[in-house]
Each structure stands twice: as structure tokens, then as C-alpha cells.
Amino acid sequence: MKELISINDVSFAYREDEPAILKDVNLTVYAGEWLAIVGHNGSGKSTLAKLLNGLLIPTAGRVIVEGYDTARADELWEIRKRVGIVFQNPDNQFVGTSVRDDVAFGLENFGVVREEMITRIDEAVRKVKMEKFLDAEPHHLSGGQKQRVAIAGILAQKPSIIILDEATSMLDPMGRKEVIETVKALNEQQGITVISITHDLEEAIRADRVIVMKQGKAIMQGGPEEVFQDGEMLIGAGLDLPFSVKLSLSLQKKGIPLPKAYLTQEELVEALWTLS
């Protein structure tokens, strides 16, 4: 698989006299994957997100994005064309008086000509199913719709990587579902690489690969099936297990011969039905 981002022995501290937030982190992001980086508050996961497009620069080590080094100021423009971030609070991301203006904002910053801008805006809002809201005022939208517009603003810039930095944490269940389904479709149908920074393991279940952060270090990585079998490790990292995994482990302790912890309720029900 093609490597898009390489993180090599990266450490980071906000000040020299403070403990490091990240400590000797190594990982690779591959083209077309959905990578979930999970951890409790303070684990360093959001700091890591900001290092990936040069909002922060490593104290030690290197972050390489498609051959560009975030530590080189003259390469940051190219990196930020390739890596877009959707942040936690949708209300803090709007700068335009309409959805159309907001999606156009980033394109204006990149100097995209008007004809190309119109085409990109139309394509981007269609991909997130917000084309009916082009002239809507942002404050009239729901939280999930606002985040979908924020994603459209990133898509219009045609990045190869989208980072969701706790982008669903302030949404209600419906808004969260809207955003996750939108991102999943972009990943599967458009081949866009997704990095999801989250403490919500229900969201991480949808990823191709999961990295668990604890106290600034990556303590485990693998597919969801592999990572979610180690309930004690996840609890030790300060994470709340998904309901189906938690119930699976509880049933195993009570002597129910389940072969593994199941990631979804549907899988668990099917396994229990088979046992009966």
C-alpha cells in the first residue's frame, strides 16, 4: 500500500520546561484507509492531529506528508493542500454567511479561479448531500449538517487526507450518524484517506485500523477485531468499551462460551442465537 504520512520518532512538548505530550511516536498512514486514533483526554491524540498538517511542529522527529516535511516552512502550503482537518465544534468553523460562501472560503485562500471554484463547490456539497442548502445561513443548520458543510469545505480543496479531530463529539446521535455515514461513503466510494481522532470506540469500530494512545505513546495498533479483544488494555487507556464488546466480555465471564468479543449488536445476537 502507498504511504501517505510517515511519523518517525516524534515527540512534542508545548514548552521546554514541561513534560512531553507525545513521546517517540512512530506510525504510517496508508492511501485509502480509515485510521482511527483513540485515547482518553490527555493521551496526545489531538496534538498528534495538529502535527499531521503542520499546525504544530515536532520537538523531535519528523512528520513527512507525501514527501513533504512539516518542519520546512516552505513546504507547509503543499502539506495543507493535502491534509484537511474538521475540528470539534462546528460553530467555530463557519466564516461565511451562507453554506456557499463558507465552502468557497478555503478555495479563495488557495487562489482557485471563479469558474473552477463554482464547479468544486457544487461537487463538494453534492458529495455530502447538502446541495439543497447552498444558500442557507449556517445558524439554521443542525450540528450534523454543519459538520457536513465543514467536510464539504475540505473536499472542495481536493485533499488526499481528511482528519476528523473529535468532529462528532459535540453532536447528538443523529448528527453523529450523519457525519460517520458521510465519511464512510467518501472513504469507500471516493478513496479519500480518513484519520479519525476520537475517544468514541463506537466510531472507531468503523475504521480499517485502530491505534490506541495512552500518555503520549501508541500502545497498540491493529484492526478493530484485534484491538477490541483486549478489553483490559482499552479500559486501562481510559476508554469506555462499546456496548456489544462490554456485553460480550461480561457474558464470557459468566461462562457463556462466546469465542470472542463482538463489535456490533447484530454480530452478538447472531452468535447467541447460534449457541441456543
Rank of each mutant, 00 (worst) to 15 (best):
I5P: 04
S6V: 05
N8Y: 07
S11L: 13
S11R: 14
E16F: 00
D17A: 06
D17F: 07
P19E: 10
A20M: 10
V25M: 08
V29D: 02
A31D: 11
A31I: 06
A36M: 07
A36F: 07
I37R: 06
V38W: 03
G39D: 11
H40W: 01
N41M: 09
N41Y: 05
S46C: 11
T47G: 11
L48R: 10
N53K: 14
N53V: 11
L56C: 15
V63G: 13
T70Q: 08
E78I: 01
R82W: 01
V86W: 12
N89R: 09
P90R: 00
R100C: 03
L107Y: 15
F110C: 00
R114Q: 15
I118H: 15
I118K: 12
D122W: 07
E123W: 15
V125S: 02
V128R: 03
E131L: 06
D135W: 08
L141W: 05
G143M: 02
K146R: 09
L171H: 13
K177D: 04
E178R: 00
V179K: 00
T182I: 03
K184M: 07
L186E: 01
L186I: 02
N187W: 01
V194N: 00
I195Y: 01
I205N: 01
V212W: 06
Q215W: 04
A218C: 09
G231V: 07
E232W: 03
L234E: 14
I235S: 13
K253S: 12
K253E: 13
E266S: 15
V269M: 06
V269D: 07
T274R: 09
